[in-house]
Nucleic acid binder design. Structure first.
Lengths: 234, 234
DNA sequence: CCATCATTCTATCGTTTCATAGAATAATGG
DNA sequence: CCATTATTCTATGAAACGATAGAATGATGG
């Protein structure tokens, strides 16, 4: 029973292999897809919404060719699909649960890896320097919105915002923040969010706005987590 | 800022790398740990309960030396910890959530990989041959136990059973199944379970018991999933 | 202290992964 | 049909991974 597979090596190894081990090997293929920082960056971008290769390459800081290769690998692992739209190939996540998978991976890593704690600490160091800027939790945010006490600020690029965002959120991409301050109300607390817990955009936005005298905090999650939790999006 | 790391290559690459990418790279380390079938087999065994290296090596079908290396890798990824007990090193999962992580990985793979479907189909082919032997769901099982209509059979090796098992379960390791039939009631339906959805032990047990005329089905999950769901264990 | 047992460490070899550059393919608009 | 644009494919070299065998370490029990 020689099963045709992606390459000769595996074909050889899989001969006479228990169903069990074959299943685990196939699962491992999915694990391997998560085993590279650049691919995780691509997945994080895809969690914001579908996108063509060039966009993905740019946000992940890769050459187009290299990004394409990583995307093929994600495709073989069943994590993304692609469809053609004119000259462009549009990639998207196959499954809403992939966001949960990455979230769980993150939580486990944060709990059990010292290195992780160090890096997260570093990411939050600037916040602390400005005086205990705790991130806003989901419940807090929802309560604040309910009472009309907070304004939501989405600092992601415009294309990610328009692919989906939190209800009522105002979009000011970080690079043009200072040029569009008139969009922000001065009488409410501002809560900034971006791509997820590790996305630096909202950290940066909070720092810059505080320097300008705004009352502003960071939402501890991002758009993908909000959406994956089944909460309403626009 | 040259951070000391596991090897020279990474140290070099990480210079001037964004916090962002460093975090994703560290996460990727956890992903990579899940990217090998043998390591997944080790994790599956560890989900049954802590064990020394030799036991782990045997159940995963590895040499002791090789198993040790894989375990080091899992340790570096923060997925397992080890402690010495006399001459032996006892390994265990660091976190209950790792079972959920593997479950989610499995669900996503099953939905999105054709190869996965094929292999699962193969695993279930024998059941179907004997006439639509649907696996028992968790709810069904709980209802059946409640009404006292089913007897639970744990076909895992004795050491895994004694590390924890479903309440009221009778343990008959598969290799000695025929020698211990007197432990099984003949007036109830028997539900067999083992290590998890892909574990072949309960499949095999069901086939052999049906040949002997027992009314018997398979539980669709295993001990780790039951425990991870917060249900009572003995 | 020595012999034993369990495990880890080290060196090695073959295979795989990753990034790069450049060729090939596919759709579009003249 | 040709030039352009977007993407994928192919070949290459450097680094990492995985399995093996044998040496080294660490705890135990005489």
């Amino acid at each position: 029973m020689r099963v045709k597979w992606h390459d000769g090596y595996r074909t050889f190894k899989r001969v006479n292999m228990s169903d069990q081990q074959q299943l685990l090997d196939t699962l491992a293929q999915v694990g391997r897809a998560l085993g590279n920082g650049h691919r995780l960056a691509l997945l994080e971008r895809l969690a914001q919404g579908e996108a063509p290769v060039e966009t993905l390459a740019t946000t992940a800081g890769l050459t187009v060719g290299n990004a394409s290769q990583h995307l093929q690998q994600l495709r073989r692992a069943g994590l993304v699909t692609a469809s053609r739209a004119g000259k462009q190939m549009i990639y998207r996540l196959t499954d809403e649960r992939i966001v949960s998978l990455m979230g769980l991976l993150r939580e486990i890593a944060e709990t059990n890896l010292a290195e992780m704690e160090r890096l997260v600490g570093q990411l939050f160091a600037d916040d602390d320097a400005h005086g205990a800027l705790e991130a806003v939790t989901r419940d807090e945010l929802m309560a604040g919105l309910e009472r009309g006490e907070v304004a939501l600020l989405d600092v992601r690029p415009e294309d990610e915002y328009s692919a989906g965002h939190l209800p009522e959120a105002i979009n000011i991409p970080l690079p043009v923040l200072e040029q569009m301050l008139e969009r922000l109300p001065r009488d409410k607390e501002i809560v900034a969010y971006c791509r997820g817990p590790y996305c630096a955009l909202s950290h940066e936005a909070v720092q810059r706005l505080r320097q300008l005298g705004y009352r502003v905090r960071r939402f501890e999650e991002g758009y993908p987590e909000w959406k994956a939790a089944g909460l309403p999006v626009a």
